[in-house]
Design a protein around this nucleic acid. Structure first.
Length: 466
RNA sequence: GGCGCCAUAGCCAAGCGGUAAGGCAGAGGUCUGCAAAACCUUUAUCCCCCGGUCCGAUUCCGGGUGGCGCCUCCA
C-alpha cells in the first residue's frame, strides 16, 4: 500500500513496524456540540483507511480520542474550556454535555457505516497519564511553570514547525494577542492549566488543582495504548499547524523522537465554495440532511466521489447528484442478481476486482475505485459473479449497496386527504379505461397542484407527496 | 507579510510522460395514451495563460493569472 505522508510530503510505501499489526491514532471529536458534515468527512476518511488496511490483511490497533476536557475556546491557552462553556450555557455539568454529544456522535458514525476504532479513549479517563507526561517534560527541561500553568518551551525543540513548514520567527507579528507575558515565546503552549477555584473540571497535580492542555491528551493516550513508536496518525488538515505540531513537539520532548511514522490528513469540506462557519449559516448536521431527505449513505457516497486530500465542495446540487448516482448504482447492481455465472463474467469481475484493489491501496484512491465499480456494473453480460464482487467492494465503500429500499419517513397526509386521493385515482382509472385521456391528465395535474404525484405501474397507480 | 493546497466539460471528479476514468445534469432513442421509472446511445480535437525540457506534457521545470485554506478555536 502507499500513503501520502504529510511529514515527508511524499507518497510512501507503507511498511508497518510490527509485522502484520498496524497501530493507529486518530484525533477524534471535542464533544461540546453536534458534529457537522465537515467533521464526518474526516471520519469517513479515517474509516476508509481502516477498511483498506483490513482489506490488505492487517490487524488493527486503533485509538481515537474523545476530547471532553481541556479544549479551550479561544486564543490557545486563554479563554474558557469549550466543555465548561457549553455546560454553563446549557445549565448542565460538563460530564452531562460530554455524555450527550458523545452519544450522538457515536450514533452518527454508526449511521455512516464508520467502524469504531478498537479503543475509544476519553481524555478525562487519562488524567494520570497526562500528568506523568507533563512531569516528564518538566524534568527534561522542555516545559516550565508560570503562574497559570505549565508551558511547553518551543524554542527548546529546534524542529518545531516540521510538519506545517511554519517558522516560528515568520509568524505574523502581533497576529496573536499576547496576554500572558510570562511565556518565553508566543508560540509556547499550555500542557497543564492551573484551575481557578470556580473551574468545574479540575484534578490534583504536582502543580495544584488543574486540568490538562488540549494537545497533551493525544500524546499521552497515544503513548499509553500504542507505545513509543506507532504507525499512523490521522486528523484533519487544520490540525497540522498547531495541534499536531504541538503533539510532535511534546512527544519529541519526552521520548526524543516522534511517535508516529506516517501522518495522514483529511482535507476540508467547503460549502458553496467557501469555509463552513456558523455565522454563514452553512454548517449542516447529519440530522438536518436527514430531514431534507438525504440518507447517511447518500452523504457517504458524496464523500467517496472526491479524494481525501482534495478539498470537497459541498452543495445540494452535488449531494443530489450523489443520491441519484447511488440509487442508480443499486439498480444497476440488481440486474446482476441471480444471473448465470460464466467463465467470461468470472474473468471480467476478477480483472476489475484487481483494479479496484490497486486503486484502494494507492493512497486510498476511492474516486478511481468507484469508477471501476461503475465500469463493472455496466458490463453487458449480467451475472451473479459480478454482483458478488461488487458486494465485496462495498466492504470498502460501505454504502449499503444491497439495501434497496431504505425506510422512508411516514407520510404525513391525513386519512381524509388520502381517501380523496384514492377516489381521484379511481376516477382517473375509469377515465383511462374509456380512453378519456384529457380527463385523466386533468386529474393528474389537479393532484399535482396540491403536491401529489401519481405514478402508473403495471400493478396500478400509486401516489406520493412531492 | 509567512505557510500550504488547488486550477480538467453545465456541475462533482480521476488521471503521476504516450495522446482525456466515472457520476450528475443535458440531448437522442426504446418502453408508456401521456407522465414517471428503467434501459440503450451520445456529450472535452483537449485539460487557466506564457515560456522551457523531451520524439512526445493535462501530466516534469520556471514564470504569470485566478481560487481556497491556515497563521485565533475548528475535521
Amino acid at each position: 500500500m502507499k500513503f501520502y505522508n504529510s511529514l515527508t510530503r511524499q507518497r510512501e510505501e507503507f511498511i508497518p513496524q510490527k509485522g502484520n499489526d498496524v497501530y493507529i491514532y486518530s484525533c477524534g471529536p471535542t464533544v461540546y456540540n453536534y458534529a457537522h458534515i465537515g467533521n464526518f468527512r474526516t471520519y469517513i476518511f479515517m474509516d476508509l483507511l481502516r477498511r483498506s488496511l483490513k482489506w490488505n490483511g492487517y490487524k488493527l490497533h486503533h485509538v481515537m480520542n474523545i476530547t471532553d476536557v481541556g479544549h479551550l475556546v479561544s486564543d490557545g491557552d486563554e479563554g474558557e474550556d469549550k466543555m465548561a462553556k457549553t455546560a454553563r450555557e446549557q445549565a448542565k455539568t460538563p460530564w452531562e454535555i460530554a455524555e450527550y454529544y458523545t452519544k450522538i456522535f457515536m450514533r452518527d458514525i454508526e449511521r455512516l457505516n464508520i467502524e469504531k476504532p478498537e479503543i475509544i479513549a476519553h481524555a478525562t479517563d487519562h488524567i494520570p497519564e497526562m500528568i506523568a507526561f507533563v512531569s516528564g517534560l518538566v524534568e527534561r527541561g522542555y516545559a516550565y511553570e508560570t503562574s497559570d500553568g505549565i508551558y511547553f518551551d518551543v524554542l527548546k525543540f529546534s524542529e518545531y514547525g516540521m510538519l506545517s513548514g511554519n517558522k516560528l520567527e515568520e509568524q505574523k507579528a502581533g497576529a496573536r494577542v499576547e496576554i500572558n507575558d510570562e511565556k518565553h515565546h508566543p508560540a509556547d503552549f499550555a500542557v497543564w492549566k492551573k484551575a481557578p477555584r470556580e473551574h468545574i473540571m479540575q484534578w490534583e497535580s504536582p502543580w495544584g488543582m488543574g486540568y490538562p492542555g488540549w494537545h497533551i491528551e493525544c500524546s499521552a493516550m497515544g503513548l499509553k495504548y500504542l507505545g513509543e513508536y506507532f504507525d499512523i496518525h490521522t486528523g484533519g488538515v487544520d490540525h497540522i499547524p498547531i495541534h499536531h505540531e504541538n503533539e510532535i513537539a511534546q512527544t519529541c520532548g519526552l521520548l526524543g523522537h516522534p511517535a508516529a511514522k506516517y501522518w495522514l490528513h483529511g482535507e476540508f469540506m467547503l460549502v458553496d465554495g467557501g469555509k463552513m462557519s456558523k455565522s454563514l449559516n452553512n454548517v449542516y448536521t447529519l440530522d438536518q440532511l436527514n430531514d431534507l431527505g438525504y440518507k447517511p449513505c447518500d452523504f457517504r457516497y458524496f464523500c467517496l466521489n472526491a479524494h481525501y486530500r482534495q478539498k470537497l465542495n459541498f452543495t445540494f446540487e452535488g449531494l443530489n447528484a450523489a443520491k441519484k448516482s447511488l440509487s442508480n448504482l443499486k439498480n444497476a447492481l440488481l440486474n446482476h442478481k441471480n444471473k448465470p455465472v460464466t467463465e467470461e463474467t468470472t474473468a471480467v469481475s476478477e480483472k476489475y476486482y484487481a483494479e479496484f484493489c490497486e486503486a484502494v491501496s494507492d493512497d486510498l484512491n476511492i474516486p478511481r475505485a468507484l469508477g471501476i465499480v461503475w465500469n463493472l456494473v455496466k458490463y453487458e453480460t449480467k451475472s451473479q459473479t459480478i454482483y458478488d464482487k461488487i458486494m465485496e467492494m462495498d466492504k470498502i465503500l460501505a454504502v449499503n449497496l444491497d439495501v434497496i429500499c431504505e425506510d422512508v419517513p411516514e407520510d404525513t397526509v391525513d386519512d381524509d386527504l388520502s381517501k380523496i386521493i384514492e377516489e381521484k385515482i379511481k376516477m382517473r382509472a375509469d377515465a383511462k379505461k374509456q380512453k378519456n385521456y384529457s380527463e385523466a391528465d386533468n386529474i393528474r395535474s389537479e393532484l399535482e397542484s396540491i403536491g401529489i404525484i401519481l405514478t402508473d405501474t403495471p400493478a396500478g397507480t400509486t401516489w406520493k407527496k412531492k
